[in-house]
Design a protein around this nucleic acid. Structure first.
Length: 709
DNA sequence: TTCACAGAAGTTTTT
DNA sequence: CTTCTGTGAA
């Protein structure tokens, strides 16, 4: 990174008084420009921090931005509003959503909650769940919302045709959410716009509050996001957006490339600045990436350049199958670690989350520490969602989705017949969930059933007393009350052990939250958790190898980048032969390649298992063929296989560092002695005798045992 | 009501 | 190959 700003960067920083669009290519220092601009606005122009709104793509980026501003100038960054669209909108709604008939303690539904809600809607409309798949309808509704098409807009011109049934489902879904005092991710963006429309004074307030607006990754904004910032800044005209049409990779979730391409029309008298000097990558990497993306018809003409060296060629590696690919790539990673790289210099990128499995298996065998971004997210795990559901229900007693999740978990004898009666009452009368649970008499329940529901009510009532304590206290009390640890300990399912560990990790994250924040009740905790993305939990400084999807890698950089599975049908991933889709895949590939600083390796496998069984032959990606061969170094399968043969000749032997009679320590149970080992490798089962002759059996890879002397 | 088992279905990408 | 769903027995 250059020490001083170049001419265009400087211009972008200092240009105020009109809307500014910065076309910033990969690695051109756009985040730096945004940061410097904010510092300039505060320090030189004299705009108070509280009048600045800066929107980033992830919470992580927001935090980094704040830190970087602090390094440049002295100011109170906490007064500044820096965050993602979703988090900014959420905190706005916390203050004003009552104007729309919700309570300010509303719950934010993530997509699995939304799916559950959709499922309830479809069955309450007596529709066949097989024909009207909740998944599909949730997707359809979300798509409509992200285009700001409402139930009453029966449009034949859009690509989604709203028929009567979709309309009814859509309407009923919205009603259900409102009855639950809940919003989904789309509502988070839509409701503020509705508020602005409805309450003119509120719009005035925010126009006045946010005198200067900055937006990062502008190419990936959708219609509601555009409306949001447009409303706020249309009078002041003090707005700076940064984006790169070549890196637009979220059209599938409603991001509208027109937002960036038509910026000048939306904001009159705007100026455009182009940042075309790349400070990140080698000439070779840039050249290769350009040759791929320039195949796109739909793109603004531009070319990045760099003063950096030519550097290594692009390494193209062919493998027989996905297992050998994983092995080959990891061998290369380990070799680099021996030379001049550390594990966190490198990243493994792939198109679909499911590709991580084979890689993980290999990494575990080699005992390489790694971290996966995405996939099954931590807060999406069943055991964590259950606990969160309790917390959410404590805050928002109208939340029927959370209620249904916890009313019989851990099992307390409240079954389908009871919950169905409650839900029916909810759907057919005006009373809300809270009211129904207060008087159970007229539900037609047996005395025993009433007793059980009251036992549940009792637990909730007791927990409510700690509601205003710190999140940590509430969670600890909760775990104690519902005896969830006992529930998982007493069953003999090997997965349950991992569940316990996750709960433990959850508790430490709550504890961490309580330490970190002054305002540390369960409300703020849930708010943070529901808007946290996986990348926010990722620590780039840890000595671990990072694995993530190409999508997640946007905005990051690594000394060495591996792109796996570059095969036709996988990257590009094609479901139909739409040109627009192919162009987006190409941009995705472009994003991946341009993450690299020094070295980019691309690999593909000749056969790849999908759905576990069927092995199919695959062709190498056309994206590879778009890179001029003189920029590449090819490793064909056969020669690579030979190289490998000499290296891999020594048979792989699992590292079983545990022996019978070893003393080991365990996070939960303390110290104990190994009395039995069944099987070998990571999946072996280890029996340990702890204090008081308590014997527990663990799966090695999950147990996290440490040898003690 | 709960648990266990069998069968079916499913993979883009994420706030 | 996994994860979810539905069915039947205790």
């Amino acid at each position: 990174m250059a020490q001083t700003l170049n001419k265009q960067q400087r211009e972008a920083v200092k240009l105020i008084g009109c809307p500014v669009l910065i076309f910033a290519g990969a690695g051109s220092g756009k985040t730096r420009v945004l940061t410097e601009k904010i510092a300039y606005l505060v320090d030189k122009v004299g705009i108070p921090p509280e009048h600045i709104l800066s929107v980033t793509f992830t919470n992580k980026a927001a935090n980094e931005m704040k830190e970087r501003i602090l390094k440049l100038i002295k100011c109170d960054v906490t007064k500044m509003t820096v965050g993602t669209f979703h988090s900014v909108c959420a905190s706005l709604l916390r203050k004003h959503i009552h104007m729309l008939g919700y309570d300010n303690n509303f719950t934010i539904y993530d997509q699995s909650d939304a799916k559950q809600a959709m499922k309830n809607v479809i069955s309450s409309l007596n529709l066949d769940i097989k024909t009207f798949q909740p998944n599909k309808y949730q997707y359809l509704v979300s798509n409509l919302k992200s285009k700001m098409i409402y139930p009453n807009d029966v449009l034949l011109t859009t690509d989604i045709y709203i028929d009567e049934i979709l309309k009814e489902i859509y309407e009923r879904y919205n009603e259900l959410l409102k009855e639950n005092n809940a919003v989904d991710f789309d509502d988070l963006l839509l409701l503020p716009i509705q508020l602005f429309k409805q309450e003119k004074s509120l719009l005035d307030y925010y126009q006045n509050k946010f005198q200067y607006v900055l937006v990062d990754e502008y190419q990936d904004t959708n219609k509601p996001q555009f409306e949001f910032i447009y409303n706020i800044s249309k009078n002041n005209n003090e707005i700076t957006v940064v984006g790169d049409d070549d890196q637009s990779i979220y059209a599938w979730r409603g991001a509208d490339i027109k937002n960036i391409l038509n910026f000048s029309n939306s904001f009159p008298n705007s100026k455009i600045i182009k940042l075309e000097q790349n400070y990140r990558s080698t000439k070779t990497i840039l050249d290769a990436a350009f040759h791929v993306v320039s195949k796109n018809k739909n793109r603004a003409e531009k070319k990045l350049w760099t003063e950096n060296e030519k550097g290594d060629p692009i390494y193209i590696n062919e493998f027989e199958n996905e297992n050998k690919e994983a092995r080959g790539v990891i061998d290369d990673v380990l070799e680099s670690v021996d030379k001049n790289h550390t594990l966190n210099d490198m990243v493994l990128l792939y198109r679909t989350n499911s590709q991580s499995r084979v890689i993980e298996d290999r990494l575990r065998r080699e005992s390489v520490p790694y971290h996966i971004v995405g996939g099954v997210k931590f807060y999406d795990r069943k055991e964590i969602k259950d606990i969160l559901a309790y917390l959410r229900y404590l805050i928002n007693p109208k939340d029927s989705i959370s209620f249904l999740r916890i009313v019989n978990f851990p099992p307390r004898g409240i079954g389908k017949s009871v919950t169905e009666k409650i839900i029916k009452q909810l759907n057919t009368t005006d009373s809300d969930l809270e009211g129904i649970l207060k008087k159970l008499d007229n539900l037609g329940l047996s005395a025993k059933q009433i007793e059980k529901v009251n036992a549940f009510n009792q637990i909730i009532r007791k927990l409510k007393k700690t509601k205003d304590k710190t999140a940590l206290e509430t969670v600890e009390r909760l775990l104690e009350k519902i005896k969830v640890k006992d529930y998982y300990t007493n069953k003999d399912n090997p997965d349950d052990y991992e569940r316990l560990e996750n709960i433990q990790e959850f508790v430490s994250s709550v504890s961490d939250f309580s330490d970190r924040n002054e305002n540390n009740g369960i409300g703020p905790f849930i708010e943070e958790v529901s808007l946290l993305t996986d990348i926010d939990r990722w620590n780039a400084n840890e000595q671990k190898l990072t694995l993530m999807t190409l999508h997640s890698s946007k905005g990051l950089e690594f000394k060495s980048v591996y792109i796996l599975g570059a095969e036709e049908g996988l990257l590009p991933l094609t479901h139909n032969n739409d040109d627009d889709d192919l162009e987006e895949e190409r941009r995705l590939f472009y994003v991946g390649v341009t993450r690299g600083i020094k070295k980019v390796s691309i690999s593909y496998a000749n056969t790849r298992r999908r759905f576990g069984v069927s092995s199919m032959f695959s062709l190498r990606s056309s994206f590879i063929d778009a890179i001029p061969p003189e920029l590449c170094s090819f490793n064909s399968s056969s020669s690579y296989a030979k190289q490998l043969a000499s290296k891999i000749a020594k048979p792989f032997k699992p590292k079983d560092e545990f022996k019978i009679n070893d003393m080991v320590s365990h996070k939960l149970y303390g110290n104990g002695k190994i009395i039995m080992i069944q099987g070998i490798g990571d999946n072996s089962k280890i029996s340990i005798k702890f204090r008081g002759n308590m014997i527990k059996k663990f799966i090695k890879k999950y147990a996290n045992l440490k040898i003690i002397n």
